[in-house]
């Protein structure tokens, strides 16, 4: 099986790859938002903790 065949998906390339594309975008957004939220929280709390100690 050649790489071209693989990407052509038997003529259904547009459908298959757009479905997978949307899935990856949604999954990626989930990861991105969760991680960003975590970092933001930790940063904020650290800042608050630091200002309390001073």
């Amino acid at each position: 099986m050649s790489l071209n065949n693989f990407f052509a998906m038997g003529g259904y390339a547009a459908y298959v790859w757009s479905a997978y594309g949307i899935s990856f975008i949604v999954l990626f957004l989930n990861i991105f938002l969760a991680v960003r939220n975590e970092r933001k929280t930790i940063d904020e709390l650290k800042k608050r903790l630091g200002s309390n100690n001073k």
């Binding site: 998906m9 038997g10 003529g11 259904y12 459908y15 298959v16 479905a19 997978y20």
Partner: peptide, 8 residues
């Protein structure tokens, strides 16, 4: 029946 589209 569905060819490669079933991979969705």
């Amino acid at each position: 029946q569905q060819g490669d589209s079933f991979r969705i």
